[in-house]
């Protein structure tokens, strides 16, 4: 929370016009809103408000260098996200942000970078990758590992194909279950980690996806030799106020909204193994 920010903006949402809605998968869309993201950094989130329904924490999924629009990729899992994901161009949503910590892009400069995305986890990692590609020379080897449930549930498939065609980016994609015409890799994304050609001691890893996937990814990264302190994950909890007051997003001694969503894995490794009701 930035104390220099107008405190009103922390509580009261802007009204943002919906400029475009792009279908990504059967249950996921990317909503483009007018107005920028107030200088968000990759990994942060905003509270998006479907008036009359409710608010949900949605990560930024678009280009952080654009100041005229802001993008959020939303998966319809409940009443609020279904309402947000069901908007049409010309309608409005409430918006307040940005909140939370971002991916350690500055720290990653000069070294190798591994991005591991599982399912909708690619959405909050996309701004990180766009940041890297805008300044590619600042990083050594960069690898993007993407896992999805099925081929039809891969996010941003056209962009994935563009990234795959680059010579300065390693992109590997795998699905948990193959469709009839899929001849790519089948298996969990963690299985791609041992194949990485990076210098482990100089590698920063950004991991986002279901917590089980993040936990096993971190284990594989450690087996590869990536220091635990260089592994960062994005934790998600039931975010309400987004400014570290209500405690709904508490994870151990951390508040996901204030101390996350991006946290060093070593801070939450033990917490991820705690059974929660």
């Amino acid at each position: 929370m930035d104390p220099a920010r107008d405190p009103i903006s922390l509580f009261a949402p802007d009204v943002r016009e919906v400029l475009a809605v792009r279908g990504e998968t059967a249950d996921t869309v990317t909503v483009t809103l007018a107005g920028g993201g107030r200088g968000f950094v990759p990994g942060q989130f905003a509270m998006v408000y479907a008036f009359g329904i409710g608010e949900s924490a949605i990560s930024f999924s678009g280009d952080p260098y654009r100041s005229d629009v802001v993008e959020h990729t939303v998966r319809r899992v409940g009443a609020v996200t279904t309402a947000i994901g069901g908007v049409k161009p010309g309608s409005v949503l409430g918006w307040r942000g940005p909140f939370g910590n971002g991916w350690p892009m500055q720290r990653a400069r000069g070294g190798d970078l591994v991005i591991v995305a599982g399912g909708i986890g690619l959405a909050p990692l996309r701004p990180a990758l766009l940041t890297v590609l805008a300044d590619r020379g600042a990083y050594r080897r960069v690898a993007l590992l993407v896992g999805a449930r099925r081929p039809g549930e891969l996010l941003y498939p056209e962009q994935l194909a563009e990234w795959r065609a680059r010579f300065d980016l390693e992109v590997e994609v795998t699905v948990d279950a193959a469709a009839d015409n899929w001849r790519g890799s089948v298996g969990v994304v963690t299985r791609l980690i041992p194949l990485l050609d990076v210098e482990p001691s100089r590698t920063t890893a950004l991991v986002c996806g279901p917590e089980v996937m993040m936990r096993f990814s971190a284990i594989e990264l450690q087996r590869l030799g990536v220091p635990t302190r260089n592994v960062f994950v994005s934790v998600e909890r039931n975010t309400k106020c987004a400014i570290g007051i209500c405690g709904h997003c508490q994870l151990g001694s951390l508040f996901a909204c204030r101390d996350g969503a991006v946290v060093p894995y070593e801070l939450v490794a033990g917490l991820m193994e705690v059974k929660e009701a």
Binding site: I120, A148, V188, M213, F216
Partner: peptide
């Protein structure tokens, strides 16, 4: 086997 178990969990499926 671990990887197969993770596949079976359908991690990215609807909650």
């Amino acid at each position: 086997l671990q990887a197969t178990r993770l596949q079976l969990m359908d991690l990215y499926g609807p909650r």
